[in-house]
């Protein structure tokens, strides 16, 4: 177990090192253009931005919006998904909604969101919640549908009431699906927040990208891109750990 984990971490470090090495070689040997800076100047610029507290502020601004919208979207999506998965009537009623709205991407809603909520926090949080909610609903409902028939029957002939079947069997069996849905939604949230901040915002990583383009600060653009990649990578790791913990071994309840 231990050595496994070390190997994984070592692999990641090597992988990232390789990525930066290729970037460096490509920038210094192949492209040789001021429009494609090698990693070192980008890192230097990042340090300046960090010392001036600018990078942190943009990261915090973006991540706060993501987290707020993501939590609101999940809090709405999970119970609706559970209800759709559990009751046929709810499915018939709500499936047209989810099937309709999930094809209207959040980026297409930016205009409406800004008209409704202005360019402040509300519009961003709304957009993130919007992009989260349908993905979470669909995978939660699918999870409820995928609970093995024998698992439910076993509980019934051990004396479980309907409520107990739901709370002690259907719900825990669905948790990995819920987490998977949230993981996908988180990836969407990154897309959405950058788009929203590019279009209308006073701060955030998207705004950093936009300003850098305006003033042709090419290093700033790369700082923002790398920051997005690293943040996304870190959040996704957290979800993968959670999913693994629930998928089998680590949690006990008696």
């Amino acid at each position: 177990m231990r050595t496994d984990r070390l190997a994984v971490v070592a692999g990641y470090v090597a992988g990232f090192a390789l990525l930066f090495l290729i970037w460096h070689l490509a920038a210094t040997l192949l492209v040789k253009s001021v429009l494609f800076p090698p990693p070192l100047p980008v890192l230097e610029r990042a340090i300046v931005l960090i010392e001036d507290n600018i990078l942190q502020e943009q990261i915090v601004a973006s991540m706060r919006r993501i987290l707020q919208g993501f939590l609101i979207g999940s809090a709405i999506g999970i119970p609706i998904g559970l209800a759709i998965g559990s009751f046929r009537i709810v499915r018939w009623l709500l499936e047209p909604w989810t099937e309709f709205f999930r094809f209207i991407p959040a980026v297409a809603m930016i205009t409406v969101a800004v008209i409704w909520f202005g360019i402040g926090e509300e519009s961003k949080v709304f957009l993130i919640a919007y992009t989260t909610v349908f993905v979470v609903i669909i995978s939660t409902a699918a999870g409820v549908g995928a609970v093995g028939r024998d698992k439910i029957r076993a509980a019934q002939c051990l004396g479980a009431s309907r409520l107990q079947v739901f709370a002690l069997v259907a719900l825990p069996a669905t948790v990995p699906y819920i987490l998977t849905g949230m993981r996908l939604a988180m990836a969407n949230a990154f897309v959405t927040i950058v788009a929203a901040e590019l279009v209308a915002s006073n701060d955030g990583l998207g705004k950093l990208l936009w300003d850098a383009r305006l003033f042709m600060q090419i290093e700033d653009i790369f700082v923002a891109l790398v920051a997005l990649g690293l943040l996304g990578f870190a959040t996704d790791r957290v979800f993968r750990l959670l999913i693994r913990a629930f998928a089998g071994r680590f949690n006990a309840t008696v």
Partner: peptide, 15 residues
């Protein structure tokens, strides 16, 4: 009490 043919009836999230 029922013992099922497959073992899908066990709860993976419990010991």
């Amino acid at each position: 009490g029922v013992v099922f043919q497959g073992h899908d009836s066990l709860y993976d999230w419990l010991t």
